[in-house]
Design a protein around this nucleic acid. Sequence first.
DNA 1: TAAGCGGTTGCAAGGACTTGCGTTGATAGC
DNA 2: GCTATCAACGCAAGTCCTTGCAACCGCTTA
Lengths: 329, 329
Amino acid sequence: MTRRLAEVAKKVGVSEATVSRVLNGKPGVSDATREAVLTALDVLGYERPTQLRGDRARLVGLVLPELQNPIFPAFAEVVGGALAQQGFTSVLCTRTVGGVSEADYVDLLLQQQVSGVVFAGGLYAQADASHGHYELLHERKLPTVLVNAAVERLDFPQVSCDDVVAAEMALGHVRALGHERIGLVLGPKDHVPSRRKLETFQAEGGDPELVEHTMFSLEGGHAAAARLVRRGVTAVICASDLLALGTVRAARRAGLSVPGDVSVVGFDDSALMNCTEPPLTTVRQPIDAMGRAVVDLLVAQIDKAVVPADELLFEPELVVRASTARPRA
Amino acid sequence: MTRRLAEVAKKVGVSEATVSRVLNGKPGVSDATREAVLTALDVLGYERPTQLRGDRARLVGLVLPELQNPIFPAFAEVVGGALAQQGFTSVLCTRTVGGVSEADYVDLLLQQQVSGVVFAGGLYAQADASHGHYELLHERKLPTVLVNAAVERLDFPQVSCDDVVAAEMALGHVRALGHERIGLVLGPKDHVPSRRKLETFQAEGGDPELVEHTMFSLEGGHAAAARLVRRGVTAVICASDLLALGTVRAARRAGLSVPGDVSVVGFDDSALMNCTEPPLTTVRQPIDAMGRAVVDLLVAQIDKAVVPADELLFEPELVVRASTARPRA
DNA sequence: TAAGCGGTTGCAAGGACTTGCGTTGATAGC
DNA sequence: GCTATCAACGCAAGTCCTTGCAACCGCTTA
């Protein structure tokens, strides 16, 4: 970058002093000259100083694990919209196959000078995964909010859907219908919300033999539920709607009808779940309220307010549709 | 920023020379010292030079209009995954209610020094909207690919699903079943893919009286289809799966069955459309192939290759499920 | 133990950038 | 037509940053 000022000055036909003033936003330069200098800077391939790029860089990182499950795009829309109203722009980062790790995204977001970061259903949810990058955020004092999981050691504010209540609701619903042999399809073993649902399931007397862990996808649900169906469950509670749809498919593949032979309960109430066959009974996460809480917590931190590193628990809501019914007598 | 080097040097306990070397990425500094200097820089609130932020800033902007329609998150996953394999990180930008405009996103992405931009179903699709920001991209010679629309005046490479073939397939399918009174539910009037479908519909002898424009949402489809149903159509072709689901709902609200009384054809074949009631007959966009083509075109541009500003047309595929049938005699 | 060697760091000269001040030129007022 | 005024800009001194060179340190080798 030797002789940057000299080169630009020569190109524009002004003195180095003038170029220097433009680059530092100093007064005493006409608009026309300022514009000419900046243009020459771009033409010559130099980078403009940050403050001249307009300081609209009010960016917030939004880190999601995937986009397949419709709950994540839906959540991104809620949070993105609420942030936009506060004058922030959200940058959506998704881990994809063969893609970028969460730690990489944290590096990236730090480099981009984001004002804050929101993690939803990310690695942090997996208790066994590396947490080094969270500590990095903590050191840098970057405003952060975690959604639907807990990292106990770190002091981040958290927003979650109450998994205990969710599991109780689902279990209570199918038991009230008369089911006794009830299966549970969960995400990976180190996924905290799944772990919490499992604990509640067992505390409420659910059969630990009828619990399956799998990946969060329709196919994963299919495989896990197939095992449960073979063991004669009459109801299956799932940790996501996609798992529930996989469960419906597994039951049908086994020649059973839903809800005639097997009742299925989902979790999330993501979009279109009232258009499915059968319309899915599910436990709704209040993502609107949660999203707004996330943004409030984040903006408060950005405004230097002291935010307690508590976990805000939101009450889910049971949405009864047509995938659950009384068991066959 | 007076005495930056001196201040940092004093804090770390080294000479200004060493700090200078670190800031310029020069060799001859131990890793420990380098780290200490960078940490001090952060602590003192100075900004790291761009090249030290890891030159992994191989960012690509991915601008989508919304995330409600599952086709957009799906597309984002395909493109994001393919980009990740090439070592790029995608930044997903979504316009949301009360949110950021496409022009704002372009500014933002330029500021973040992205390597390229992909627009899908964005403003550019709307022929009447402002295109100033596309010209800006063109001036800066920033690699850009447009998906599913045309901006004739600008020389951007484009990747699209062939709307002519899509409309012919859908129309041919319902006509082969014996339908004659066929409605068409499209997006906004200035949405280019909708416009192309309309032209094909008319060229193939479709009735212009049975065409409705609406917003791209389930509710929009419901409202538009309700008007068509009142006019006695026996089949409805829709410009997206969400519109099709809205159409199914409108038909049922009118006391008609699908496909018994009304056949419905969607467009996109987004996820879960085989789980709906009824499973939706739809025209599949080959988003995998399209996504890979987008990435190829973009990476070629980034690698300074000359890419023709053509429109690559991808053939859609008719997926017949259970929302279409012969009309009642 | 001393010499050799490679990696790390400070010194200081030289170069790049900044800034106070003076000059220029345009405009307006007398 | 003359001059006061002021914005815009260049000059050059001063400040800050960069870099070649040499000193230093720890390690290996004779």
